[in-house]
Design a protein around this nucleic acid. Structure first.
Lengths: 256, 256
DNA sequence: CCAAAAGTGTTATGTCTACACCCATGA
DNA sequence: TCATGGGTGTAGACATAACACTTTTGG
């Protein structure tokens, strides 16, 4: 609860007319892990820090929560400021981080949000010298690239969350546009889960209007010809979950 | 990240030698949803508030995070103070809540933790007049019982999380003791998911030493006789997930 | 008609479910 | 020996995976 109970720490009990400022004060921030699919790889939007600490280091975008807004609103504001997209429903909270030394200057508790976009706009020009870049998450997960603060851990948790949500929610459709081919949708699962999926079986898994509704349009085929792919839009079933179960890499049932 | 970026809100950029106290200050608390299985129902530990606001209302236990401890440590401390059990590994963070009006007195951001215990000790006597009680979560989920602050929402999220973790983690074994019968373990799934499971099929699902290791001991049978149940302890496979997949109540694949 | 990629059929294998049945034990 | 659960067998429905095959299009 939001007040200390008097049962086991009576010394921390506020008097009836206590001063709220008598309790430890924290800064509260919201960090947004913006993920997208690019070159068949899961990539994350990073910005280069322009000031101390960690000046010049890469970090995920974020900012302070204002006292008058909710956490969700703060995350939506950050997402809009950073990418220009206004997509509050795409945001999913996935964790809170409050280690005392996570920011060298002050006590900061941050709440991590996840946003999946089908296209990350190029950085808005003319605002500042700060850079933005899309980086494959694999570089962060395997330690080839380090980030400011505890942002490596935050990205790791976000990716874990994406892998889970792909199975239990309709997150997969957020990686693709309003209309998409089955190959595009399949590549989402392949990139995020790191597996190969048989195109024929994948088609059967999502067959039916509940999952994919034909638009009647087709893609342009590639430079060497080939049959154009049918374009679909997402059906209603995605609201309640996903059509595929994550392949269990190891069979946890012991033999016999 | 933990500092505002200068790219889109330059007015919020701190000067190099800025004063940390210039940023909005929040109280940060940790609330612990303590769940257990009692009378074959999922129940939550509530305490009755002794002071304003919401005096006399039921709430989940919690308290302020100290600047020198992590969020996990704060949750472990609250759990110990409230129940006397020291079980940090049982704690799982599941959400953060920071609506501006969630506490009428001040701006409080709280982080929700979940703890599953096999037995909730009776309230520690002699500390205070505050009451503690185990309440079926169903009473809260269907609105028959209201709680202080936004604690109904927090309990709802915690229960959602338990239902999910039962499938993707070894949470089920935390509901039972070090040694348990298959009937006990099965009742965990039945109570949390609200389903009936065939005892024969359940046995097959968890068969194998990876999941359940026979202890060689048996239970005492009931008053009317009956075959004593074998006692098992949890195997190693629970560390990587659970043996059962949650039954999908509706088949989301559309016919043909 | 050829290349390329979409889309279909088929079969083997594995998993879930229901339910009949047997077994071990204390009263 | 009876009642009471624990524990096993089995058959059908259903899901998964592999892969050969057919279709559709642009060049």
């Amino acid at each position: 609860m939001t007040l200390p109970t008097t049962r086991h720490q009576p010394d921390a009990t506020p008097p009836p007319g206590y001063d709220p400022r008598a309790f430890p004060a924290f800064a509260v921030t919201v960090d947004v892990v913006i993920l997208t699919l690019r070159d068949a790889r899961l990539q994350v939007l990073l910005i280069r820090r322009g000031g101390a600490p960690f000046e010049g280091a890469w970090a995920i975008p974020g900012g302070f929560k204002r006292p008058t807004e909710t956490l969700d609103e703060a995350a939506a504001r950050e997402l809009t400021e950073e990418t220009g997209v206004d997509a509050a429903p795409l945001l999913r909270q996935f964790g809170a981080y409050g280690d005392p030394d996570r920011d060298p200057r002050m006590n900061v508790v941050t709440v991590g949000y996840l946003a999946v976009l089908r296209d990350v706009p190029p950085p808005v020009a003319g605002t500042d010298a700060a850079e933005a870049a899309l980086v494959p998450v694999a570089e962060i997960l395997d330690g080839r690239r380090t980030l400011a603060f505890d942002h490596e851990r935050i990205v790791r948790d976000a990716v874990d969350r994406v892998r889970l949500e792909l199975e239990v929610s309709g997150l997969a459709t957020e990686f693709v546009g309003d209309s998409f081919t089955l190959a595009e949708l399949r590549s989402v699962y392949e990139a995020v889960w790191g597996v190969h999926l048989d195109a024929a079986n994948f088609r059967r898994s999502v067959a039916g209007d509940a999952w994919i509704v034909p638009t009647g349009h087709r893609t342009r085929p590639g430079p060497n010809g080939g049959r154009p792919a049918e374009l679909y839009r997402a059906g209603a079933a995605w609201r309640t979950g996903g059509p595929l179960r994550s392949p269990r890499t190891i069979d946890r049932r012991s033999p016999t």
